[in-house]
Amino acid sequence: MFKILRDLLRYNIEFTIGFILTLAIFLFALAHFWAPMPDTAIYLLPPDMPPSAEYWFGTTSRGQDVLWQMSSAIWNTMLFGLSVTILSRLFAVAVGMISGYLGGKWDEFLMTINDTMIALPNIPILLLVYFVMRDQMSWPVLALTAALLGWNYDARLIRSVTLSLRNREFTRHAVFAGMSVPQILVRQHLPYVMPVIFFTAMNNLIWAIGLEVTLSVLGFSDINRPTIGGMIYWANQHQAIIAGIWWWIAFPIIAVVLLFLGLFLLAISVNEYIDPRSRLSRMGA
């Protein structure tokens, strides 16, 4: 693991930039655990202060420090985004690979579910869940719901990769070597599916964070818990843009853009590294 990291840092400039950006933002987000004030407290500080030596990123109209709000917000948003991504990747891989490999009735059954889910509109479903859950609505529940909505297209993609792998001679060979279905899927096919997983993970993360922001801006989430969307919601409520409190919105957005950039660079460089063709070249094929 350490050797892979070292190789990537040494030989891949995209990875290095991505790694530094992501690490910096991660450390910044981690810092909220040592924040001088609780992140839900309001009117502790003088409101609407522009960036200065005392308040680096200024304060909000609600008397909060933008710096520490951002730190918490990025943490919470990322926690949500990554949970959705990881959960939905698990669904996509399981459904895509099983459907592609087993084929027949399994394929029909799983793809019917998959295509039905694709046809469902996301936002209304999430709103429905919100109204049903009301007070029990917490971020893990929201993450699970989003994950259930976010795997369908990628499952189809993974299915098509597995479908082509199923017809390769090495798969038939594996069957005659007595390998079981899980062995074939994990040992033989997963290395080829990995690049698809990484590639779609990035898109999915962006989609999940976008969804969180959308719901928060509309006010359909726990608005007291700081998130990127939540910050925009409150800034909007206080008409920050009209009032000229630009730092309330500008800094969170810059942070998110940098984070996306960092993650994107990480994803493409790791993808290049784990791609079967590049792996084979490094092994000397």
């Binding site: 390769r168 001679e169 090495f170 038939r172 060979h173 594996a174 005659f176 070597a177 007595g178 390998m179 062995q183 040992r187 033989q188 290395p191 080829y192 079967p276 792996r279 084979l280 094929a285």
Partner: peptide, 23 residues
């Protein structure tokens, strides 16, 4: 069975002995 293309019959990302041991 014995397959046509020996380079296709073994997964390039799996060691050869995996097939032998599994059998």
């Amino acid at each position: 069975p014995i397959f046509q293309n020996p380079f296709e019959a073994f997964n390039p990302l799996t060691t050869l002995d995996y097939y032998l041991f599994s059998t």
